[in-house]
Nucleic acid binder design. Structure first.
Lengths: 350, 350
DNA sequence: TACCAGATTGGTAGCGCTAACAATAAAAAG
DNA sequence: CTTTTTATTGTTAGCGCTACCAATCTGGTA
């Protein structure tokens, strides 16, 4: 009697097949593939060989059913740079599909819409939430989640809140490093475009900039600091203003890529070459940075890795929560890096 | 004896709980939540009410284990506009998590790297593949997949291949509609920037443009057609050339948003205002379109929906394949729409 | 030699769900 | 009013995996 057809593309290999092939019990195979100890090295090797030979790969559905370890994780994003989003999603995706977690996705307009979105997630049986910036920085959103008693992890969060788990880079150091690099290139008249005043990250990045400038004994004139809102347009406008002074800056550090791109456009518009006449650098290394011309020198955050790590942390947290363990916030700091592309150059010989 | 802790955020509600609550068998509840017929209306209502009351939501792991219907679907993308990617991912994600499908993601550099990536997927137990553009248009990639005997669905595929399943918009009509719109706005001297010569979509869009022009009896001069490569830079360069003629075009239709953004930058650089002096429109409605300033008027493809639909089609196809049914290609054509933003305007009064 | 701790392996049961079939109730037919 | 059909519900078993506990096998120890 023909049973069900082969599953997963003819890959009907189950743990039992492997067990039979090796001549051990399924349990032993399970131990091996889960990396448990107390398996003789010889047995382990044989099992591994069979797994390889039969091209076995465990059925995640069965596993999560058996371990009762499945989780539904929510992904809440507002409207960050969409380029940021795709890298972010990529990270979330590859990690969560590996762990068999289910995803619920909601977007919201700023922290205001968050309540609704989170209610929806909770109703959908969500076990935990991942927050993308700028939501991750919102105390309000954090409060809602705490009230809901839902574990959550923020990504790229600048606010140093010891009660919230997150994965970040050191924005202060990164901004400082980029500024130092500009100084190394000979720039002295460096302007800065701040991000949205509500975003904590804006402040931190600005502080890093100031710190580097101060350390080199450089002054930061008031009219060399522009207020932006993380949008292309705001960068454009701010740069137009900054470049209108008679004593123009030779470099502009915009605190995200969108604004940097806007700044480049503004420079071009008034006939300034980038980077020959003015250097423009950004922050984030989103797709924007490498799609614009000239491609932007920028601070790279390993967004995808960070997002993946956030998923892992969240799952740990959910597990801990289920085991009744007390909550313990974790703060993981990843390394950033400076990406030098064509929008920056040494100061033009005066 | 304490059993396992509550799962899924305390949501331990199983189908049995609902069944007990209503006073029917679990099977009946199963029937209701799966929308099967042959359930009395009254019973159905009661079950629904309980589901609501208990906030039950089915355990996908258990379901896919029981139905043997789980699938691993691969997502192969090369390096399209990253902004495109995020919408694409969003669509894939929400659909596949609903259906409990597992995702494998691989990127590759053009069709060349595809073989490796696909081998990897196959080895990973992939049951089917989703192709993002421009891979979806590659006959080579299609051939590899056919040889591997893996079901696949292409997204935004312009090549009219009756042996391949895909979800698209009508690129010809879309380009034609946009061109007509420009003509409506009074433009007569309309330039076009073509996409990468290898991409079939480039040709189709160009054909649509030509058709609309011809229909209005407008001539398309050779030097009003620029060759681009779907990159910002190529759009910039092409536009610079197009705008250097003494008899400038009053509108430029770039066949994707990146190139349109480049064209805007080129116009700005030579001191032309967009849209007051020259209208620039794009194609795709990626994030690029709305992050640049002025925001681009463009052709919108419902990327997210298309991607979601592709997942559904693929799942159907995998199911059919498993049941031994003969393969049947499906071609789903979605509606596009014209999005008018700030980069287009009526022809300037001469 | 008898005994025990620890290492290693196996057996049993069940996670939550649904396919397949069995059973019953209701409706239609004879 | 019995028989047949049909609509509706229930029962059983098992998807593939792992938690838990029992069994066996080591290598000492007394």
């Amino acid at each position: 009697m023909a049973r069900k057809l082969g599953r997963r593309g003819g890959n009907i290999v189950t743990i039992h097949d492997v067990a039979r092939h090796v001549g051990v019990s399924p349990m032993t195979v399970s131990r091996v593939i889960n990396g448990e100890k107390n398996v003789r090295e010889e047995t382990r090797a044989k099992v591994m060989a069979s797994v390889e030979a039969l091209n076995y790969s465990p059925n995640l559905a069965a596993r999560s059913l058996a371990t009762q370890d499945s989780a539904r994780i929510g992904l809440l994003y507002s409207n960050p740079s969409v380029a940021f989003l795709s890298e972010f999603l990529l990270g979330i995706l590859s990690e969560s599909s590996q762990s068999g977690a289910q995803l619920l996705i909601e977007s919201c307009e700023g922290p205001e819409g968050a309540t609704v979105a989170l209610e929806k997630m909770k109703a959908g049986g969500c076990d935990g939430v991942i927050l993308s910036p700028p939501l991750s920085d919102s105390t309000r959103v954090a409060k809602i989640l705490k009230d809901m008693n839902l574990p959550f992890v923020g990504v790229a969060m600048a606010r140093p809140d010891p009660t919230v788990s997150c994965v970040t880079i050191d924005d202060f150091k990164a901004a400082k490093a980029m500024t130092r690099r500009l100084i190394e290139l000979g720039h002295r008249r460096i302007a800065f475009i701040k991000g949205h005043p509500n975003a904590y990250a804006s402040q931190i990045r600005y502080d890093g900039f100031l710190a580097a400038m101060a350390k080199s004994g450089l002054e930061v004139e008031d009219n060399f600091v522009g207020q932006g809102y993380f949008t292309y347009r705001s960068g454009f406008d701010a740069a137009e203003r900054l470049l209108s002074h008679k004593d123009k800056p030779t470099a502009i550090f915009a605190s995200n890529d969108d604004m940097a791109a806007g700044a480049v456009a503004a420079a071009h518009r008034i006939g300034l070459d980038v980077p020959d006449q003015v250097t423009v650098v950004g922050y984030d290394d989103t797709a924007m940075a490498s799609s614009v011309w000239p491609e932007l020198t920028t601070v790279r955050q390993p967004i995808s890795d960070m997002a993946g790590l956030a998923v892992r942390l969240l799952l740990d947290q959910i597990r801990a929560y289920r085991m009744g363990k007390p909550f313990e916030a974790v703060r993981e700091v990843r390394d950033f890096s400076l990406i030098e592309r064509q929008s920056s150059a040494a100061i033009p010989e005066a």
